[in-house]
């Protein structure tokens, strides 16, 4: 059992949980993920590690309440426990001195990106960060990012804050040079940014978040086509060359079980959505 130490609501439906998991905390590195199972009948879902604290023995992850499992996770409180957490999983990010690095994050993936930005800065890089959300009210980690980045730009889909959309990146990349780009966020955002960075020949790593079951190389549901070859996101990734990933296939594979996910979510809400259900 993994006890919840801290719970925060960062924006509407975006929640943070810090859980007690000392062995995982001791081993976690930026770019890795965990697989959790909320309760005995639960599914296995992957979440990217947003932070870890070796001294406290805790691991932090942030999620959007979109489906049954994330809604159920969001209904838990400090002191409650999650039955299973396996990790750290996946290949850690490459952290070294690249020079000038462009880090782009969207939605809840801004949180794990923060971990990378911190590590890249400590490795001696100059880091320019771009964080984005659908609208101003959903933007997270702005102050935290400002603390660790050399410069921060803000983007929203609706233009309620900062730049509207990613077109400004072209101007930025014309004006400044970068040796590497790190992109973490929704597939469409990673695809857009990768296309732009490709035209400027900036090596770009994206973090894919396909469906996973075991997360340890066993099932192959997380297969992603990278440069024409099938890779498993769980053991070969989750970071891949953004100029090689087949994003169209990735989106389709992420949506494979949408009808079932909707049914599961409705079923759970009918049963009281965690408020009245006996567990």
């Amino acid at each position: 059992m993994y006890k919840i130490i801290t719970k925060q609501e960062l924006a509407a439906k975006i929640k943070l949980l810090e859980v007690n998991a000392p062995d995982i905390a001791a081993k976690a590195k930026p770019g890795q993920f965990i697989i959790l199972v909320v309760d005995e009948t639960g599914e296995r879902i992957p979440l990217t590690i947003a932070d870890y604290n070796i001294v406290k023995g805790t691991v932090t992850f942030i999620f959007n309440e979109v489906g049954k499992t994330t809604k159920q996770l969001g209904s838990l409180n400090e002191g409650d426990s999650i039955v299973n957490i396996a990790g750290p999983l996946g290949v850690p990010s490459e952290i070294k001195k690249f020079g000038r690095v462009l880090c782009v994050g969207g939605g809840v993936m801004i949180a794990p990106l923060h971990l990378q930005v911190k590590a890249l800065r400590e490795a001696g890089n100059d880091v320019t960060t771009v964080i984005g959300a659908r609208g101003e009210d959903l933007l997270i980690f702005e102050q935290k990012m400002k603390k660790v980045s050399n410069k921060v730009y803000i983007v929203t889909d609706d233009g309620s804050r900062g730049f509207k959309g990613f077109d400004f990146l072209k101007e930025l990349l014309k004006a400044e040079s970068f040796q590497r780009a790190i992109v973490m966020g929704p597939v469409i955002m990673m695809e857009t940014v990768s296309e732009i960075s490709k035209s400027f020949n900036i090596p770009t790593m994206v973090t894919v978040t396909p469906i996973m079951v075991d997360g340890m190389g066993m099932c192959g549901v997380c297969r992603v086509t990278v440069g024409g070859e099938t890779k498993f996101a769980c053991i070969d990734g989750p970071e891949f060359d953004g100029h090689q990933v087949d994003f169209e296939e990735l989106v389709k594979r992420q949506r494979l079980f949408l009808p079932e996910e909707r049914l599961s979510s409705m079923f759970w809400e009918k049963l009281g959505g965690g408020c009245h259900r006996e567990r």
Binding site: T41, M218, G220, S264
Partner: peptide, 25 residues
């Protein structure tokens, strides 16, 4: 893969979906 299919059905008991969370189609 047979592994994915069998892991869903056996380990995750997707034959009892949605009582168990893991779906199979």
């Amino acid at each position: 893969s047979a592994n994915e299919f069998l892991i869903r059905v056996n380990l995750m008991k997707s034959y009892a979906f949605p009582e168990y969370d893991t779906p199979i189609r």
